Amino acid sequence: MSETQQNDSQNNNGQTIIINQNSNSNGVGTAGFVLSILTLIIGCIPILGWFVWFLGLLLSFIGIFKKPRTLAMIGLFISLIGIILLLFVFANLALFGASSAALDGL
Rank of each mutant, 00 (worst) to 15 (best):
G97L: 12
S23H: 01
A101R: 11
G82L: 00
Q15I: 15
S23P: 07
N11R: 14
I41Y: 05
I42L: 08
T16Q: 15
W53K: 02
A91L: 09
L85Y: 11
L87T: 06
Q15M: 13
L57W: 07
I74A: 09
L35E: 06
L95T: 06
A101Y: 10
G82A: 10
S23C: 06
G75K: 00
I19D: 05
S60R: 02
S23L: 01
F65Q: 13
N22T: 01
F51P: 04
L95F: 12
L48E: 07
L71P: 04
D8S: 13
F88D: 12
A101C: 07
L58P: 02
S99V: 12
S23I: 00
I47S: 05
I74V: 12
L103Y: 12
L103W: 11
A72C: 08
I81T: 05
N24R: 07
G43C: 04
N22M: 00
S99D: 13
L85M: 08
G56H: 02
L35R: 05
L71T: 07
N92W: 10
L57K: 03
F65T: 13
G105N: 14
N7W: 14
I45E: 09
G82P: 02
L40G: 15
L38A: 10
L57N: 06
T39S: 05
W53G: 04
I45H: 06
T70W: 04
Q21F: 01
I41H: 03
I64K: 04
S100I: 09
S36L: 01
